[in-house]
Structures are given as C-alpha cells and as structure tokens.
C-alpha cells in the first residue's frame, strides 16, 4: 500500500471541495470495509482518502414520509434493525442482515454498500500482474472467461467481463425501484437505481453512473404495501457469512389468493443487480404457489449465458425465486 493523505470531512460540501482539489487519485472512504480491503490487495491505490463517515447530515433514517429515506452514512446494522423497516419491509432488513458479519455491518454504510466492487477472484487477487482483468486494468483481458467460473455471472455478461455484482442490499433496492441521491461538484441529483449500475459491455471498469467527485448522500425507496409481503432469500455456500450463489428479492401484493403485483430482483447471477421484469409479468394473476412461481422464475434466465461451471445457477436461481415467492406470500400483512 502506498502512502496517502487522510482527511476527515464534516460536511458534504467540504468533502466535495476536498475531492475537487485532490484530483483523480482521491477516494471517499466511509466504512472502508470494501475500499481498505482493496487497498490491501493492491487493487485500489488512492493517494488521498477523504473520510465521509462522520457526516451527520447523512446518518438519518426517515420512515415517516411517502418514501423511506436512508442517509448514505447510516450503518448497515442500524438499518437492518430499524423497527419500521423490519416490520414493513422485511426484504430490505434481510438483505442487510444476511450480508457479511455483524462486525462489518457495524462499519459499512448503506450508501457505501451500493459501491461494493465485485468479488470476482481474478479481479481481487490479480493485482501486480497475476491475472489479467479488464475491470482492474482496462484492455488486459479477462481471466475468468475460460477460467474457473463457478461464481461468475450468467446475465448481463460481455466478452470483456463476467464479474458478478456482489451486493444484497442493492438487489432489494432494485426490486423496490429505489432512487439514489447524489451530490457532487455540479450539485445534487437523483438517479433511479436501474440507471445507477452499468453493464460491463466493453468498459467493465465503469461500474456506476457516477461522475467524478460525486458522493451518494441518500437512498429513497417509494413506499409500497407489497413491502410487508416481502423477503430477501439468499442461497450461499455456507449458512452465513458468504456471498450469494443466487438470491431473490421478492415483494408481493396479493388479492383474493392471486398475485396482483410482484417486485422481483435477483442477485449472484448478474453483472449488476438484476430486475426480473418478465418473471414479474408472468407472476401477476397467478396464485403464489411454488409451481406457478417456478414457471415464472425460469423466465428470468431466458437470456442467460452460462460458462463451464455456473450453468447450475439458472436452475438454482429459478428455484430461489420460487421459494422466495412462497416465503413472501406467507408473510402476514
């Protein structure tokens, strides 16, 4: 790790100003669970760190209005435990509490979590000329393609990159049409989460639709009655403390034993948090049974392009969605 300067900002404006002066080799740091980790791995090599964890203006959780509003600096553990979130949006709470460990959830922020970078081992463990990686070193190639690809994405891949988007919380937010609030040198703006994450295409190094110097200040989630009948179902290689092989965020509105409206997003399978629109359409009007859900769930993988060892994610992903539909439907309203 090379040396860097460390600066603690007290306001967003200070942070943005500091970033502007520091230039391209600056990074904002909040919890640091992802950035500091990648610095230790030599993947991130900032010259300046601007600490935004202490911005009081970004810590709030407001569940009173028309939208749930989460300050970007709120800790994952705190949002997971928020009583309103737990009661009315179990999907959001579960997506946080099933991520990482309590130690890391006590450090990481809900804003920073949106920016967690892929766990692709060729990306993480390849700095210093070990593995080529177009995300880490544009143009160097992709070692995962033709390599050990059990963990790689099957949706949204390109010939340059198959790295999975690692998050759980972003998947749940995607299902609920969250909006990402940003501020930066050009002032504040909002971005629907669907537009926040970029497909790899030929530029897998560009992952987020953020401008240089921008900070996530908050996340807004439109309230929906479907929140109570929701779940975040996560299948992984061990019972806890692991990233998703497949996951499904499902929220349902049920009328007369039939699904009226479904929100479905999936994780562990896509190069970004993946909204399963076709599955949502197919679920509507159907009873929330496992059989009906499974048929609809397979549609989520219609365009999937599996590699050598990850084809199982198509079936597992569909079953994960189907189980999530059943779990969500059984939730008391």
């Amino acid at each position: 790790m090379r040396q860097f300067t460390y600066t603690r900002a007290r306001t967003t404006a200070e942070a943005v100003t500091a970033f502007g002066r520091a230039g391209r080799e600056a990074r904002y740091i909040a919890g640091g669970t992802s950035l500091y980790d990648l610095m230790k791995l030599g993947v991130e090599r900032p010259l300046h760190l601007i600490d935004i964890a202490d911005l009081d203006e970004m810590r709030h959780v407001d569940t009173a209005g028309e939208r749930l509003v989460f300050g970007a600096g709120a800790l994952m553990a705190d949002v997971a435990e928020n009583p309103v979130v737990r009661r009315d949006y179990p999907m959001l709470s579960e997506s946080l509490s099933k991520a990482a460990s309590q130690q890391l959830r006590n450090m990481a922020t809900v804003g920073g979590n949106l920016l967690q970078r892929t766990r692709c081992p060729y990306f993480r463990h390849g700095a210093g000329g070990i593995y080529p990686c177009n995300k880490r070193e544009p143009g160097s190639g992709c070692a995962a393609i033709g390599g050990l690809d059990r963990g790689q994405a099957v949706l949204g891949t390109s010939s340059a990159c198959t790295a999975v988007s690692p998050g759980d919380w972003p998947v749940a937010l995607t299902a609920l049409d969250a909006v990402v609030e940003l501020t930066g040198p050009a002032g504040p703006r909002s971005l629907p989460i669907a537009d926040f994450y970029l497909l790899p295409g030929s530029t897998p190094d560009r992952e987020f639709a953020m401008l240089p110097g921008e900070i996530i200040t908050g996340i807004a989630v439109p309230k929906t009655a479907a929140g109570r009948r929701s779940t975040y179902h996560k299948i992984r290689d061990r019972e806890s403390y692991a990233f998703a092989l497949t996951s499904a965020a499902v929220a349902l509105t049920i009328d007369g034993g039939r699904i009226r409206k479904a929100h479905v997003a999936i994780g562990g399978v896509g190069t970004r948090p993946w909204r399963a629109r076709q599955t949502e359409v197919l679920l509507e009007g159907r009873p929330p049974t496992r059989e009906a859900a499974l048929a609809a769930a397979h549609a989520a993988f219609a365009g999937a392009r599996p590699g050598k060892e990850n084809a199982f994610k198509l079936e597992l992903g569909a079953r994960t969605i189907a189980d999530a539909v059943v779990i969500a439907a059984e939730r008391k309203v």
Binding site: Q3, T5, T7, E14, T17, H48
Partner: peptide, 18 residues
C-alpha cells in the same frame, strides 16, 4: 469551509476539515 492550504493534501499532512 474547505481547504485553503494546499499542503494539507499535497504536502501530505493530514487535516480535518471540521
């Protein structure tokens, strides 16, 4: 508010911006 001393970043010393 903000950085007025360039050296806080480029000189390498640390500065709280509070």
């Amino acid at each position: 508010i903000g950085i007025t001393r360039r050296e806080t970043l480029h000189g390498g010393a640390v500065a709280s911006l509070a």
